[in-house]
Design a protein around this nucleic acid. Sequence first.
DNA 1: TGTATATTGTGTCGAAATGACTCAATAGGA
DNA 2: TCCTATTGAGTCATTTCGACACAATATACA
Lengths: 257, 257
Amino acid sequence: MTNHSLPSNDLQDGSVHLLPAVSIDNVIFGFHQNALTVLLLQAKSNQKWMLPGGFVGKEEDLDTAAIRILNARTGLTDVFLQQFHVFGSAKRNRKEHLRGVLQTLGIELTPESWFMQRFITIGYYALVNYEQVIPQADVTSLTCAWQDVSQLPPMLFDHEAIIDKALQALRLQLNYQPIGYTLLPKEFPLKSLQTIYETILGRKLDRSNFSRKILSYGILEKKEKHYSGAAHKAPFLYSFKEETYFKALQNGLKKEF
Amino acid sequence: MTNHSLPSNDLQDGSVHLLPAVSIDNVIFGFHQNALTVLLLQAKSNQKWMLPGGFVGKEEDLDTAAIRILNARTGLTDVFLQQFHVFGSAKRNRKEHLRGVLQTLGIELTPESWFMQRFITIGYYALVNYEQVIPQADVTSLTCAWQDVSQLPPMLFDHEAIIDKALQALRLQLNYQPIGYTLLPKEFPLKSLQTIYETILGRKLDRSNFSRKILSYGILEKKEKHYSGAAHKAPFLYSFKEETYFKALQNGLKKEF
DNA sequence: TGTATATTGTGTCGAAATGACTCAATAGGA
DNA sequence: TCCTATTGAGTCATTTCGACACAATATACA
């Protein structure tokens, strides 16, 4: 973890009502200007960027905590949020950053404080609608802002690796679950969805074949044309058919083997 | 967690050298008599079965701890072991079982002891060679034994759900990674591999199509015939081609999308 | 010794999916 | 008016998939 959505005196007596040694980091993906982006915070102490994270209450489910933490930075409540990996190397080096955080807050803690101990962090990823998010910085950060996934700024400790791993997890998910409903506005051109797939997969896809395949899932509905103002033919817009979309989320898109 | 491979006085002062609130549970799969099996321990206190689990040292990587715990019950060192999910519901009810464990060991702990607190557990699964395992019970268990996955005995708290989730994770893995090298003896008939796939997927596969597909991966080598003594044609044996097998493990079997 | 039975190796066939293309239509810029 | 980028639609050869057929054969049993 790096961040927290709790009052700063929790750092002093968090041990009373927080689960020790465990934190949560959220990788929140959005889609804007034809690019996949991640919501990040910039640390006051050293200007590096970090994932919005936090702690878990002593009697709080992990999933509930992840949602609470996401809500604090985005204002969103109803979100597709999924655990994807635990980062548990003993050498996740937080020490230096923590000193900075404490200095920022004007707090002193002994090295024995719960907050100074080793933490493992559980990675969750979310796919959200860019438009609906109101980024909210916290007391330790200068700003909360979207960053292009393919051009990440300097990140705190292992947070770039965590984003990488989230992308890998998404890449696998593409093969058995639909994606996009929570990332895109109600109506969108197929091109946008294709860009999302391309970013996650890290390679170009054939336009024609992509359209054939995605439409074969039966989760899209064709709407009217969209005149973007660009110097070329106007594309059709599409929207997700909620019913079949969620059925596909549950049952998977295809049966391998 | 449920179990531990550490001396029993760790229960008293584990807080000194163990990570609090975090345990590991291993789902160890083996293949025997044409069936997929899991290695389980039977609790002395109430005869229920549980996954071999344990704790994490304060300076120990999660993955290292998982291997250490697996080694303690199987004697194996070189194993395919993979984290698949964190179980973090606040209501994972260990309390009753813990009382039993403490009674068995003749230890008394205050409710404030680290051991009596809430734990989240990280699930790892392993695929191992049945023949090479020497099951080893620990101080809190009557026995350590293999159990058929499709006929599990009564299990402690959420351990059946954990096995289910491990199977689900395996099911996904089948689509992009080869499986079997660590489960089967050096040489085996295709039928054995097919049974593994069928158990993991929970449905029958067409023999002919299975063979075509699995051979198309190029990870198998045909060996001599095998006369089993059964009243029918003798099958060929196969072995994995290590080089291509591990290449496939790394790079995946196919590129969806 | 001969026949029955279960299971294996091999192959067929149509349907579906995939990857690499082509080409006309068109919205706005030069 | 012509140019250019992009779209919608479609072609086509190749590969993959699912379901099934059939002969070969290792042993049991009559």
